[in-house]
């Protein structure tokens, strides 16, 4: 095993250890303070309002291929889909999920089915939809669903490129809340300009912790924050060492 592989394995091992340690430490203690992300507070309110008003909630999972790193953000989206499906299961118009990748469409159907079964509600497999297989056909399909279903709120959590602007524009035209986060840098720039509640960088991956998806989400958020500070310190130390001519 060479040095980079060893470092990679050590990093993953440390991260896992920190996650499990945090989960164990906080299992009987109050959850630690996490910085406020106002977007998630608004989404929780929007879910409540949508259930009361009988309007549809929409969650889009993007186009992340399941056998690539682009699927990780969609996994966060699926965790949140599970939460909102359980919260809004009793609604006249239960949530609908769209995606631009067939494996994600199947997983969204599975998540909605499981949530409906848990809540004892009816399940319709067509609530997990594949709206298109190319970036623009997917976005056009998701945008038309927002129009046709008059959704109360749209959550876009997945891998999106610039085509996501077509979906946020549809949300804007129907005057529904749009919260969006992606792992794609171009998509993030577009979302900053077009989404009502854009999530920047790792904020997207913190969604589960803020939406009450379980203790392990909180624990992984603690591990993320600790490692972020370690990386920041390493970068600063590296910059100083370079400046003084040691590196």
């Amino acid at each position: 095993m060479n040095f980079p592989e060893l470092m990679g394995l050590a990093f993953v091992g440390l991260f896992l250890g920190l996650m499990l340690g945090s989960a164990f430490y906080y299992r009987n203690r109050p959850a630690p303070f996490v910085r406020q992300i106002p977007a998630f507070g608004r989404v929780r309110r929007a879910i409540g309002l949508a259930v009361e008003a009988g309007s549809r909630l929409h969650l889009s999972l993007g186009r992340g291929n399941l056998i690539s790193t682009r699927s990780a953000v969609a996994f966060v989206g699926l965790s949140i889909l599970d939460r909102i499906a359980r919260s809004a299961a009793a609604s006249d118009r239960p949530p609908v999920a769209t995606s631009g990748e067939s494996t994600l469409a199947i997983l969204s159907q599975d998540t909605l089915h499981d949530a409906s079964k848990f809540m004892g509600a009816d399940y319709d497999p067509l609530r997990g939809q594949l709206t298109g297989l190319t970036p623009f056909s997917y976005a056009a399909g998701a945008a038309s669903l927002i129009h046709d279903e008059a959704t109360g709120a749209s959550l876009l959590l997945g891998s999106f490129g610039s085509e996501v602007a077509l979906i946020t524009e549809a949300g804007d035209r129907t005057e529904s809340l749009t919260l969006a986060g992606t792992d794609n840098l171009t998509g993030q720039a577009v979302l900053y300009a077009t989404a009502q509640e854009p999530l920047i960088g790792e904020e997207t991956y913190a969604g589960g912790a803020y939406m009450g998806a379980g203790g392990m989400h909180q624990a992984s958020l603690i591990a993320q924050d600790i490692f972020r500070w370690v990386i920041i310190l390493a970068l600063l130390v590296g910059a100083v060492l370079k400046l003084v001519g040691v590196l």
Binding site: F75, Y205, A206
Partner: peptide, 10 residues
């Protein structure tokens, strides 16, 4: 970091 966290949770 988010990808590592999401991957490890799965």
């Amino acid at each position: 970091l988010g990808i590592v966290a999401a991957g490890l949770r799965v």
